[in-house]
Design a protein around this nucleic acid. Sequence first.
DNA 1: GTAGCTATATATAATGT
DNA 2: TACATTATATATAGCTA
Lengths: 79, 79
Amino acid sequence: MGRKIDMKKIEDVTKCQVTFSKRRSSLIKKANEVAVCCDVDVAFVAFSPSGRVSKFCNQRRIEDVLNRYVNLPVDKRLK
Amino acid sequence: MGRKIDMKKIEDVTKCQVTFSKRRSSLIKKANEVAVCCDVDVAFVAFSPSGRVSKFCNQRRIEDVLNRYVNLPVDKRLK
DNA sequence: GTAGCTATATATAATGT
DNA sequence: TACATTATATATAGCTA
C-alpha cells in the first residue's frame, strides 16, 4: 500500500511515529474484522521502545485471552 | 480489499476457514512489518471456536511479551 | 481440503494544508 | 504538530480447478 518502503527500522523519529500510528489503527481494524467474521478470539499487544503500550482484544478482558495462551500445555503452544 | 463482505460471522464453514486462513497470513505479515519498521515488540494470539490456536510474535518468547502486558500496573493496562 | 487468479476494495507513504 | 489528499501498492472475496 502506498509507496514502497524498506523492511527496516524507520530512523526518522517523526516518520516512524506517524507510520506506527497509522498501521496500528489498520491492524486493530483488521484484527476486529477477523474476530467478527471468523468468530475467533483475538488479542494483541505492542510495546514501543519508549514504553508506550498498545493493545486490542475483541473480548472484555484481554488478560483472560493472553493468559489462555500462556496457560496452554507446552505442546499446544509450539508451532 | 476484494469484494465487500458484511461485518458479521461467515456462516459457511468452508468460506469462513478460507477467509480466516488468508486474513491470518496478512495480519501476521503486517504485524511483522510494524515490528520491524517501527521497532516495537508485537504479540498476538487467536483462538478459533474449535480450539485452534494461532499466534505471532517478533520476539523469541511470546510468553514473555504476553506476560509483560499482564504484569503491567493496572493503570497502564487501561485505555 | 487446497492452491492460484483477478477484479475490486483498502491501506498507506508521501505530500499538502 | 496534527489532519486531509492522493497516487500507488496490497489485501482479499469470489471463482476456478
